[in-house]
Design a protein around this nucleic acid. Sequence first.
DNA 1: TTGTAAGCGTTATCAC
DNA 2: GTGATAACGCTTACAA
Lengths: 342, 342
Amino acid sequence: MKPEDGATLSSARGKSVTMGDIARLANVSKPTVSRVLSGSAGVSEGARSRVIAAAREHGYAVNLQARKLRSARTNTVAVVLDFGSHRAGRIADPFVFELLAGVSEALSVRDQDVLLSPPTLVTATAHADLIRARGADGFVFLGQGDRAALFVDLARTSVPFVVWGAADAGARYCAVGSDNRLGGQLAGEHFLKRGAKRWLFVGDIAHIEIRMRFEGLRDAASSGIEIDRLAVEHLAYPSTHASAAAYLAEHAPPDAVFAFSDTAAMAVIAAFREAGHLCPRDYALVGYNDIPPAAHFTPAITTIEQPTHLAGAILVEKLMQRIEGARATSAMLPTRLVLRDT
Amino acid sequence: MKPEDGATLSSARGKSVTMGDIARLANVSKPTVSRVLSGSAGVSEGARSRVIAAAREHGYAVNLQARKLRSARTNTVAVVLDFGSHRAGRIADPFVFELLAGVSEALSVRDQDVLLSPPTLVTATAHADLIRARGADGFVFLGQGDRAALFVDLARTSVPFVVWGAADAGARYCAVGSDNRLGGQLAGEHFLKRGAKRWLFVGDIAHIEIRMRFEGLRDAASSGIEIDRLAVEHLAYPSTHASAAAYLAEHAPPDAVFAFSDTAAMAVIAAFREAGHLCPRDYALVGYNDIPPAAHFTPAITTIEQPTHLAGAILVEKLMQRIEGARATSAMLPTRLVLRDT
DNA sequence: TTGTAAGCGTTATCAC
DNA sequence: GTGATAACGCTTACAA
């Protein structure tokens, strides 16, 4: 190594260390450094160790932007969270967070960067632009919210995306979700066993996932059973609490309640209790998601469990298929009834 | 426009539309297209409109990777979430999610991309590498978890970062948090008014934020007051529930409880109720965060409110200062007691 | 196994 | 106002 080697370091010129610098220090060429650092085979042990030593010594890290510019893929996935439903005093079910953790980990395993989709992205065009701008290779939507129309539009484009949520029967895109219809059926069967006749469904069926749960419930109902529906405005504890209280004031009390989330279930229990309508004494109740507090609530809430651990991995796998141009089928993950006190 | 224009589009050669294509179509040069699309002044109205028309017609979007390679900043911020505390059955307080929403929006306003920090990043070196690799310009840590040591290490480097959480007295880095000590004091004052003498603090003081709350509580205590501490293992509802039950079995019941979160407060109420120790009949209780269900729980929980709406904006502002090389002072956001039934 | 050369698509610099 | 030209730092041919 000649003394000049240090002097020609680009960092000495006030810039950051580049691959060329490492190449010079290790007495190899740039491509060889590249090969070593991206772990491709076909490099001699000597060259490899010299490169690694030089890189470590000079704190060199490959410039990700340059790499991404050069290669066809960005290796970045945009994740879309449904903040709208969680802000402004509405409640965030831990559920989405668990889903995010799962997705994040699955992507990390595949060396994919996770971009949080900016809240300004609303139209299909805007999403397509992000792909064209090479900001990401595809999208994972965590929760459908009121995006049904967006998905239909997006499915007409070549934008790779997967959606967490119910797969609509004729959906042209890949949706991975728990079997919401089954969830509803399980709730219905539970009510039948309890001999309940006047069922109340709490949830906004404008959301596809939630409508499927309602339909499952309806499927399970035999003749002689009456099903009423209480549309709560937001995914919120307070609004559910208020709606539930108002409902009791105007209607005959139900002897079974199926709530779209455990949080909503808690709100119903609280509101009904204030009116003297007690669970499980006066009615059966099934929640959704099996969040930890459900087990320890008083009464312990019977609920439908979703397989969050699997979900992230499967979503990511499907998206990768789509990005690589393959077809990806929608999938339904099984749910099960967790029987507790209600 | 000559017919050749279309034929020379790079998209016709199977590549995506580039700035050069738009330049040709609009009869200007690449730099002019760049000027128009990045909104810089000094372009004639004619050129501007031709460029915009051509870009729109061909669905052109500026290649973000190329732009980032060229410019000094990546305009990307890495956000670090504390999934560890939220996974595997532990509870996610909606609080973090609200914080994330706030940060995400504040960054979007400044045209910053949000990268979710990969779960593999643990050491200070790994974080520094991401900056050197130009994966991001800086970090926002949402929640300290058990990262105290990491922050100290990171503060010795030139990595720009800000932390949501308590600012340690001698901290060398920028921490933005609510005034946890004040929160503790407010709880203590509430207990004094109720005439409580045997206080119980529920929370793990290994977490700095939580220790500050404990210290605030202690500050508020006058002589003759006994304070006990119950360290719960995780940020979890179930573990708090179990610990609280076990506590009552071995100790004299407290007449005041200060829990590190509303969720934990709910767990305490439930566990104590099962042992016949009722709130507010037998003890006063203060939670933390003012999550929506706290208001509608039975009993409605008295709690400490944190200014989540402000937090995101302030964190981002401070980080931008750090990235631009300026100093950024830690900040304490005020908290207030929300008085309810407990 | 290794090196040379040629871009990837943008923006900065400097002329005009 | 506008345009030619040269980087930015890497990877992919292709050649040796």
